[in-house]
Amino acid sequence: MEIDPFIFRLSIFILSIFIGYYVVWSVTPSLHTPLMSVTNAISSVIIVGAIIAALAGEAGNIFDTPNIFGFLAIVLAAINIFGGFLVTQRMLAMYKKKKKDKK
């Protein structure tokens, strides 16, 4: 009997929750704000669904309702991806260690 591919995806999902659990607990509390902004950015990988939806069908179809929703989602996700990663970068660049040479 074949296993439904859904079960494989469910396995990936459950195991990823565990990975997330252990990885996030090891994040230092002082970086919790960058953690939120970076998770925000990566959850915008939903853009892959938006791209498939937007580019579906022939050239003439791109103004069909499903495609338009895809294009709208692309804009929203793009704002998030660029905004999320860049603001994280900006924050992380500010975390500095004490200078060792004491005057």
Partner: peptide, 13 residues
């Protein structure tokens, strides 16, 4: 899979 993994990571985070 990329979306499933990411969703699980962000959700648990």
């Amino acid at each position: 899979t990329a979306l499933i993994i990411t969703g699980a990571l962000v959700g648990s985070s």
